[in-house]
Amino acid sequence: MTKVFITLTGTKHYFGNDFLEKGMKIRLEKEPDNEYDKEAIKVTYKGLGKIGYVANSPYTVIGESMSAGRLYDKIGDVAYAKVLLITSVGTICKICKKSLVKEEEE
Rank of each mutant, 00 (worst) to 15 (best):
R70M: 12
A81N: 10
I51V: 02
G69V: 09
L8P: 04
T91H: 09
A55H: 07
L20Q: 01
I92L: 14
N56Q: 05
L28I: 03
K25A: 04
I92N: 10
T44F: 02
Y53W: 06
L84G: 09
K42P: 00
I6A: 11
G76A: 15
E39T: 07
Y36F: 10
T60A: 11
P58V: 03
A55M: 03
F19G: 02
L48K: 12
M24L: 05
T2V: 08
S99A: 06
E64I: 06
T2A: 13
G10K: 04
V89A: 14
L8T: 02
D37Y: 03
E106R: 11
L8Q: 08
T11K: 11
K82G: 11
G49N: 01
G47H: 00
G47T: 00
G90D: 06
E21D: 07
R27M: 06
Y14D: 04
T91N: 04
V89Q: 15
L85R: 15
K12Q: 14
K97Y: 06
V89P: 04
H13T: 08
Y59I: 08
C96N: 12
A79V: 08
T11S: 12
K25N: 00
G69M: 09
E35Q: 03
D18A: 13
D77F: 13
D73N: 15
V54L: 05
G76I: 08
I62T: 03
A55E: 04
H13K: 12
K94Y: 10
I62L: 14
N17S: 12
L100T: 02
K74W: 06
I86P: 08
A55I: 00
K46A: 05
Y53S: 02
V101M: 13
I75D: 10
V54P: 06
I75V: 09
T11P: 05
K46V: 05
F15R: 09
N34P: 00
F15S: 07
E64S: 14
V43W: 01
K22I: 03
